[in-house]
Design a binder for these strands. Structure first.
Length: 1041
RNA sequence: GGGCUUGUAGCUCAGUUGGUCAGAGCACCGCUCUGAUAAGGCGGGGGUCGGUGGUUCGAGUCCACCCAGGCCCA
């Protein structure tokens, strides 16, 4: 017995028992274990953070990962799927900070790092349940019970080991650099973090006068969009080679770039010309004398970076607040003024604005300048400005102490390694990621925060000596707790506990303490190839053989500068190669209007709702089917519904059809053996199609072109299997007994379904499993091998021929439609082309049944039904005759096409004069089309044409009535919910002689079709149902016997 | 502002090395088939292929510029 597929169950109810079955029988684990000893296909899971709800955009990359892992498993590889959690970092801290209602860092310190970190640790798994649930529902098999977790001591120890490798090779340095800094989070952000937060905003755009020293009424005109930095101004920078001028405007003199004179508001007169370099060291008066520097300042310096695109060509410079400014400051040894604290507020020295957030101070500063007559002009300007990606505060750039890894020192190696990675799509690797690597800068890895892997560098308080422990053991050997006790084995490696460990300086005997920073959490996730296996403390023996590098990773495109980069950077340094060989990149999921989904816009799709409504199979299939992963997918709920109705539904029904009739006949696959070559042509055809599909699906999968794979499979299941094959074998299946013909149909359908279940298993794991298990007694489709095609069973000629038959049927239906004769009304003759006689004769029964005709006749000369139209074949003639083409086309249009064809058929060539050229026309150089001739029902498509004899004689009319009656009776059977095998008795009443005659003449036919043992005319009774049969009233009653 | 990518029917997408009334599915309308089907079939309406120029006998396809969305970077 074949288990019947429940076609009516709600998707979620359909999938749940299957999921339970997997769990009960431990199938996910088995799918790894049963390949023990097989070649490995190494997969790395990029760790998500479970402190936010999973969304539909997470479903896409999870689907991709799962499909590839399942496919590779079925291909015979052992694929381990270890889950992972990213647990450190700013996002977590921000979340907790919000909970506690803190807005600045100081509040955390007052609250206590210990308590704070404890909360962080808890918050990391806030949505773990939802993540598990989503992963589970989606059918993403991942070992969630043994994940790697970046906060575990083992993981941290590996990260320390890696950092220690860098440190030992002198790859880590400390430097003052201009960093993007979030005043609210109180930490600098890395480049990839800054990148996420650009927004368009309006800022003041101000033109400022700087009074030139010892020259009356003379000013430099400079421009800025950050007035608050003016307080720290120490220099003005001009381009050495650009032209500058002094102009007289009103009663004052202004100096600016000649090319920027357009910014002046009033009439002016040029009184002097300079090159930028002529202005070098020209002095001016300090704008805001809050701080009086010791070093020489307030003069003109030269810089190549000055542009003439905006501003005045005279650039205000504050070395503490800009990268270029900082560089100039170093070059000219300018004073370094940074009167801004870590909260982004002015320090006490700036008496007028002390304690005020710098951006808020802009207004007051502008007002002050205006009152003093130093403001030349102000306006608002729209530009993009970076904001903190988590807390939304505007970032400020300023100089800060930070730890760096010299990634630039091995940039070439990274670029080289990147070239060996297979990127899908390729342009990510070459373009976006490649470009980024080319411009790579040193990696700022320290964060002035609390919740993260502590930076494992200790500094001597006295002499600045550094040391770095690379393991817990080393920590124990080198350090003691502050109270003098030894470092315990189970020391918690987070702050504040680890901060209690002190070393004795080997150089000066002073106390060494850990530098307070924590490590960028991207360093954590980039370390995962090592950290997940606690390498090198464990697993060292098998690491390079079985665990590293990954054959495959897949994440969203937003990881380009994130995980993709850090994975490459760290493993290039540690192992000299990339930690992943191939990378499948998916674009973002957008809403159905092509807009980005976000919680704030309210257009985010609830992944749980979708999974509940349509099931995981439909959701997964849709995500793959809708558009290639590397183009942005517009998520359209109706699309998921469509997949469910059409594809999943059809597949279920085919399986259900097989089970229904297979069970009626007690069919057992193993009891029979008919070589495919000995089966009917229709069977050989679907087997051929199946093998062609297997071949191509595998090709697509190898290129990770999963979209083409599922599109092909969907079309195969719906068109080839369901709409043609199953439709055409119904008569064979209904026959009584177990003739070879029927057995062959069962065997074929069984084989097709079984192979289909395996083919679809990676994409739609639930329905595939259900079908597989309904067909076999085996444990799981996911413990199967992926089908391989048999070249001998692929019969291209037969596939082509079947195409003709399908075309003929399609055309004939169109023809019937045209004359409005429905298919139930039989017709006498169908005319088909002589050239296709062989096929059509062989498959005659298919056509006869589909079109309901009695006979097929073959005609050589289709001009009986149609006229020719002739056009040049541009592809052939175009290159030869070039610009004469339009005249040739015109000439052809004016010719008698039928005559031309006659000549071509006879002589093979026709001579034509156009534009004094002699044109030789052959069949190859023309496109020959046809048109209906008046009075015939005729259709054509390519090589195929059909015509129908539309005359209906007496006998056909009676037969049509009989078929109509059968249809009504079948409807009543269905309506009254009879079993398929029930025998019935039919009673009818009618006043139409025509119907009576039909019942008489076609009684056998009617009874056979409807499984009736009796067909009797009776007096009309109330329980008879009235029907309209071709315009005549008939009363019918059916009863089970 | 720069780089990459996308723009084809109301919606989701195909459209090969340039070759001639521009395709599919969904949705809509009409007809139709059906004892597996929430399906299927036939037909219809619906597109100046984002825009403007250019190359060519010929451009959805190649080139330039522009517009819009997305991603990344300043």
């Amino acid at each position: 017995m074949f288990k019947k597929i429940d076609v009516k169950a709600k998707p979620a109810d359909f999938e749940k028992p299957i999921r339970d079955y997997w769990k009960q029988h431990n199938i996910p684990q088995k799918s790894e274990d049963f390949r023990e000893g097989a070649p490995k296909f190494v997969f790395y899971e990029g760790p998500p953070t479970a402190n936010g709800m999973p969304g539909i955009h997470h479903a896409i990359s999870r689907t991709l990962k799962d499909v590839v892992c399942r496919y590779k498993t079925m291909q015979g590889y052992q694929v381990r799927r270890k889950a992972g959690w990213d647990t450190h970092g700013l996002p977590v801290e921000i979340e907790v900070q919000k909970q506690l209602g803190f807005s600045v860092k100081k509040e955390i310190e007052e609250y206590g790092i210990e308590k704070f970190n404890k909360k962080c640790r808890e918050s990391v798994f806030t949505y773990e349940k939802e993540w598990r649930e989503m992963t589970n529902l989606l059918g993403y098999w991942l070992d969630l019970d043994d994940p790697y977790i970046t906060l575990s001591n083992d993981y941290i120890e590996t990260v320390w080991w890696i950092l220690n490798q860098y440190w030992k090779k002198d790859m880590i340095y400390i430097d003052n650099k201009i960093v993007p800094f979030c005043p609210s989070c109180g930490t600098p952000l890395s480049d990839h973090e800054v990148a996420q937060g650009y927004k368009e905003v309006e800022d003041p755009s101000v033109y400022i006068r700087f009074k030139v020293k010892d020259e009356k009424n003379t000013y430099f005109l400079a421009w800025t969009t950050t007035p608050w930095t003016l307080i720290s101004n120490v220099a003005l920078v001009v381009h050495p080679d650009h032209d500058y001028v002094k102009v007289k405007t009103g009663d004052e003199y202004l100096i600016l770039a000649k090319a920027r004179l357009g910014v002046l508001k009033e009439e002016y007169e040029i009184v002097e010309n300079y090159k930028g370099k002529d202005l070098k060291y020209k002095e001016y008066e300090q704008l805001f004398p809050f701080i009086v520097p010791e070093e020489k300042a307030f003069y003109v310096a030269l810089g190549d970076y000055v542009t003439l695109e905006d501003g005045t060509g005279v650039v205000h410079t504050a070395p503490a607040f800009g990268e270029e400014d900082f560089a100039i400051g170093k070059e000219y040894d300018l004073p370094f003024m940074r009167p801004v604290n870590e909260e982004g507020k002015f320090t006490d020295e700036i008496t007028s604005w002390a304690g005020e957030f710098v951006k808020d101070a802009d207004k007051g500063i502008i007002k002050d300048l205006n009152m003093r007559g130093m403001l030349y002009f102000r306006t608002q300007m729209k530009h993009t400005y970076p904001f903190c990606w988590r807390c939304d505060s505007p970032l400020i750039y300023f100089a800060r102490r930070s730890w760096y890894i010299r990634t630039t020192s091995y940039n070439d190696k990274m670029i080289e390694n990147n070239k060996k990675i297979d990127w899908y799509p390729p342009y990510i690797g070459e373009g976006r990621f490649g470009d980024w690597l080319e411009n790579n800068r040193d990696w700022a890895i320290s964060r002035d925060r609390f919740w993260g892997t502590p930076l494992n560098i200790w500094l001597c308080e006295k002499c600045g000596q550094q040391d770095s422990p690379g393991s817990i053991k080393e920590l124990q050997e080198k350090g003691k707790l502050v109270d003098g006790t030894p470092v315990p084995d189970d020391i918690e490696l987070h702050r504040p506990y680890v901060d209690d460990v002190v070393f004795t300086c080997p150089e000066c005997g002073g106390i060494m303490r850990r530098t307070p920073e924590v490590i960028d959490c991207w360093f954590d996730s980039g370390s995962m190839p090592f950290g997940q296996w606690h390498y090198p403390f464990e697993n060292e023996d098998i690491f390079d053989k079985e665990l590293f590098p990954a054959d495959f990773i897949a994440e969203g495109i937003d990881q380009t500068r994130g995980w993709f980069y850090t994975m490459l950077a760290i493993s290039t340094f540690i192992k000299g190669r990339s930690s992943y060989k191939s990378c499948l990149v998916n674009e973002m999921v957008l809403d159905k209007h092509g807009k980005k989904m976000s919680k704030s816009k309210g257009n985010a799709v609830d992944v749980f709702k979708i999974l509940d409504k349509y099931g995981a199979d439909a959701t997964r299939w849709y995500l793959l089917y809708a558009s290639p992963p590397w183009t942005p997918t517009r998520f359209d709920e109706e699309g998921v519904l469509e997949v469910n109705n059409k594809f999943i539904g059809t597949l279920k029904n085919v399986a259900s059809f097989f089970a229904t009739y297979g069970n009626i006949d007690n069919f057992e696959y193993d009891e029979y053996s008919i070589n495919p070559k000995d089966r009917p042509e229709l069977d050989r055809w679907i087997i051929s199609r199946l093998n062609s599909v297997i071949k191509r699906v595998r090709e697509f999968n190898e290129k990770y072109d999963l979209t083409r794979a599922v599109r092909l499979l969907q079309s195969f299941v719906i068109n080839d299997v369901s709409n043609w094959y199953v439709r055409r074998i119904r008569k064979r299946v209904w026959a009584s007994g177990m003739e070879n013909d029927k057995v062959a149909a069962y065997m074929t359908l069984y084989e097709v379904l079984l192979a289909t279940s395996k083919l679809c298993a990676p994409y739609a794991p639930y329905i595939s499993e259900e079908i597989y298990r309904s067909l076999t007694n085996k444990e799981s489709v996911h413990l199967e091998n992926y089908p391989e095609h048999d070249e001998e069973l692929i019969l291209p000629e037969l596939e082509k021929e079947m195409r003709y038959i399908i075309d003929i049927v399609s055309l004939a239906r169109a023809a019937r439609n045209e004359v409005q004769i429905k298919i139930r009304q039989p017709l006498r003759t169908l005319y088909a082309p002589e050239e296709l006689k062989g096929v059509v004769e062989r498959m005659k029964s298919l056509i006869v049944e589909e079109i309901n005709i009695h006979d097929i006749e073959f005609v050589k000369d289709k001009t009986r039904f149609m006229d020719y139209t002739i056009k040049p074949d541009y592809k052939v003639m175009g290159p030869k005759y070039g610009k004469h083409m339009s005249h040739i086309a015109q000439a052809l249009q004016n010719m008698d096409a039928n005559h031309l064809i006659d000549v071509l058929n006879k002589d093979g060539v026709y001579h034509l004069d156009v534009d004094t050229n002699e044109i030789k026309l052959t069949k190859e150089s023309l496109q020959i089309d046809t048109q209906n001739k008046e009075g015939f029902v005729y259709g054509e498509d390519g090589d195929v044409f059909v015509a129908l004899d539309t005359r209906i004689d007496e006998e056909l009319l009676l037969e049509g009535n009989a078929r109509e009656l059968v249809n009504k009776i079948q409807f009543m059977r269905k309506e009254q919910d009879f079993d398929i095998m029930d025998r019935i008795a039919i009673s009818f009443y009618t006043e139409s002689d025509e119907i009576k005659e039909a019942c008489e003449k076609f009684a056998d036919y009617i009874q056979k079709e409807t499984l009736a043992v009796k067909l009797a005319e009776k007096e009309k009774t109330d329980d008879m149902k009235s029907w309209n049969v071709n315009g005549k009233e008939v009363f019918l009653q059916v009863k089970v016997i």
